[in-house]
Design a protein around this nucleic acid. Structure first.
Lengths: 257, 257
DNA sequence: CGGCGACTTGAAACGTGTCAATTAGCGTGG
DNA sequence: CCACGCTAATTGACACGTTTCAAGTCGCCG
């Protein structure tokens, strides 16, 4: 499927890249992989990865504003969120970050993120030097197209969230969040059809307070809505996994309008 | 102030460009002006403007999804909004477009906008050919930087709107919307300090239903909140103009958290 | 065993939506 | 010139969805 790097070259410059990246190579927009292969094709070296990778435990902050003056993080493994906290302590999650995601495409051009990136599960990530990644993107039209596409998707998701928060009820918001995550996971091969039915199963490490922060609701209300979904046989959550038992019905809830 | 195009060259290819653009040249990110001067500098011709300009009356739709397969609109004059309508008829305004604004930076790379652009006042706009504008941006680093900056601002505003809709009350949302517009107008020289006080005055063509569509509220509630602002001596609205009477107090309302 | 965080559930309070009646303004056509 | 119809805005009463507060369960880990 993918043209692996020659072990000899990789091992010489940055040990352990290949095995670690095995888990996110399925994602189309895989910056690590793309950057590494492009470098190799152009015989550039060293590879623009500052370190093999960082690993942080769940709930830890991956980067703050000041950490990003010249670093562009890419999630290799695990779930993260970009979060903004208001002065009264309430939080809003702007987006969830899944393996293969660039934290934000605007980071390629500016170093002033207004939000934190926080690990939800244990997260392994890599940081690229902005200047390096930027140069790479300009030299390789293929990478630039990927960037443009990532940028469009990022804006699309933001716009959808605006519509959700502005015009939809709690039930719709939560159902749509789950369906969106399911779709993104499926793209990465991280969600699987369960048993013979049309049900879908996926890892689901989110706490209810994450859902609340993302949908502009309170954790208490999230709990009530999820209970209702469960009572109606739409989903099942257990043991950090979620199953959509009735995809058609669930989509109907999500698209009440 | 600005280096005007030679009348001889302009008149030969596209009549009337110069006088019409007089009103939006003050805005830093002026695509018409930038594109035209760049073309001239590079001795490219014809200028990548398909027609002198279009003018549509208030409330008219400027472009739909299918109109944008190869056209990138720029607002020359007047106010517009990008709007999405849900199947039950409710509407969400994603952003207001002021003179000099590119409708959306993602339009440079893809032709699938999920929203309409609707005129609020009478609007004069220009459409550029995507391929042309795109090529131009790549050839001129200065233009590319402008694009990147526009992209960052666009995303910042979207993120702020997400926070507003997710975590702020009606009063905060409305106050912040007005303050944001005041700031953007001020950047364009379209808002002026009023009398000796610190008050700010500006054109304000928005109907209350526009405010409602942008803040995720109902027109009725918007009316109540604006009445309250007026009672408290924070703002005055009359005759399509808005004055912020007590900027400090108004900002306090907007940043309750 | 005790403590803590995640979740659940119910009751009451609050903010915003819905519905309805009314007024003002504005352009159109008789 | 006035009557008309239309849209925008205002205001009050009430309904609904969500939040807040509080109490309690469960599982996990020290």
């Amino acid at each position: 499927m993918n043209a692996r790097l020659s072990p000899a070259i990789v091992e010489a410059s940055i040990p352990h890249v290949q095995p670690e990246c095995g888990t996110c190579q399925s994602h189309e927009l895989n910056w690590c992989h793309a950057a590494l292969t492009q470098c190799r094709a152009a015989l550039i070296e060293p590879v623009p990865v500052d370190q093999p990778s960082h690993t942080v435990p769940a709930r830890r902050i991956i980067c703050r504003e000041q950490d990003l003056h010249d670093a562009v993080p890419v999630i290799c493994n695990g779930w993260a969120a970009s979060v903004v906290t208001l002065s009264d302590g309430s939080r809003q999650i702007l987006s969830f970050l899944l393996p293969g995601d660039l934290v934000s495409t605007t980071l390629l051009f500016e170093s002033r993120p207004n939000c934190l990136v926080e690990a939800i599960t244990e997260v392994r990530f890599r940081t690229f030097k902005r200047s390096y990644l930027k140069a790479l993107v300009f030299e390789h039209p293929h990478l630039f197209d990927k960037l443009a596409q990532a940028w469009i998707e990022e804006k699309d998701r933001a716009d959808q969230l605006i519509i959700d928060l502005g015009r939809r009820t709690a039930d719709e918001r939560i159902a749509r969040l789950i369906l969106n995550l399911a779709q993104r996971l499926a793209q990465r091969g991280m969600a699987a059809p369960a048993c013979a039915t049309s049900a879908m199963e996926m890892d689901f490490p989110l706490r209810q307070h994450h859902i609340a922060d993302a949908t502009g609701l309170t954790p208490v209300h999230v709990s009530k809505v999820l209970s209702e979904f469960r009572r109606d046989g739409l989903i099942r959550i257990s043991d950090r996994a979620l199953t959509i038992l009735d995809p058609a019905g669930f989509r109907r809830v999500a698209q009440a309008r």
